[in-house]
Design a protein around this nucleic acid. Structure first.
Lengths: 190, 190
DNA sequence: GTCTATACGACGATAGAC
DNA sequence: GTCTATCGTCGTATAGAC
């Protein structure tokens, strides 16, 4: 079940991610995490201050990874059109390949157990998405309007589709809808 | 704080709604609910089987109310265009006037504590939204395409904007963006 | 660094008087 | 229907050996 050439710390994080998305943070006990990860209580508390520390580390990791993916996209593409399309493609692909990460990222009310974190909406990745839209408006690719509205129109549909996928009401894998989705999303703001 | 011409049951529900949206279901104890509602433990358990029963009643009420609002919209308007616009206007207005209800409806992972309920996405109101889109496609108002994609494009932006509002990153009240938002959303699918 | 055993507190739920 | 007092459970976190 758990890949054994992971460090103890990573085994805990992987187990926690599976359990948090499956049962939710509060319904997951530290016991569950020790069992699922096959790591003892003592070791878990050696690497993490407390249960919140586990969740926090998971959150930081996910956000950091998202940021670096987005940076790569920004470097690879110049126009807002290409950047935003790449972001949506990435999101759909991640939803397909790593539904747990995606679910933890989008679906989890982190505020309930990570009071120190800002809401997902104002986390770095979302800021980057908004700033892509902003430069798109400056370059004249996107029609002049409120940035939050334009961002909602561009990325809202994709996020909605992904939550539909995570809820299991999508017939095909998310990536299957990319072209259709992008055509509509871009038409909305251009 | 609590309106005193409410029945005991309703005082409990009102307090629970405030607390659930503010702190989350699991971080809200029955003690919190008794204090906030100024109702004793015994009375709370007289009206509700357990803590889950409180959440369940709250969920049923919210969904039922949404359904009747949507039915009224369907009766008032004939075209998919008008119906969908009215739904979005309603959602924005509710987000403004009753952020707690809206937050509980959209933002809460009900599955974590209401295992019997279907996910929000497949709850009745969301089904009604999808079916409005479906008739819109049949009538030729909306371009022929997958219903889930079209629904995501039409309603996803509004939902995204509302969560932005609930996260506090909106400068104006949600209703302020209605025209802008609707123009983009409808352009995406028509 | 890893483990087992355990202390401690909090919470949900009940009992039973009024 | 409403209340107070209380019980039992469960889960987090620590202590301390190896």
């Amino acid at each position: 079940m758990t890949n054994s050439n992971l460090t103890t710390r990573d085994k805990v994080l992987a187990a926690a991610l599976r359990l948090f998305t499956a049962k939710g943070y509060f319904s997951t006990s530290m016991r569950d995490i020790t069992h699922e990860s096959a790591v003892s209580t003592g070791s878990v508390y050696h690497y993490f201050k407390d249960k919140e520390g586990v969740a926090s580390a998971l959150y930081q990791t996910t956000v950091a990874r998202m940021c670096s993916e987005f940076e790569a996209i920004i470097n690879r593409h110049e126009s807002a059109h290409d950047r935003c399309r790449a972001v949506i493609a990435l999101l759909l692909q991640l939803a397909e390949q790593e539904p747990d990460s995606m679910s933890f990222m989008l679906y989890t009310k982190h505020r309930e157990f990570l009071p120190l974190e800002r809401p997902v909406c104002s986390s770095e990745p979302f800021n980057m998405m908004r700033s892509m839209v902003e430069t798109g408006i400056q370059r004249g690719e996107i029609v002049e309007q409120d940035v939050v509205v334009a961002s909602s129109c561009l990325f809202g549909p994709a996020i909605r589709l992904i939550t539909s996928h995570l809820d299991g009401i999508l017939q095909h894998p998310p990536g299957h809808y990319l072209d259709q989705l992008w055509r509509c999303s871009w038409k909305a703001v251009s």
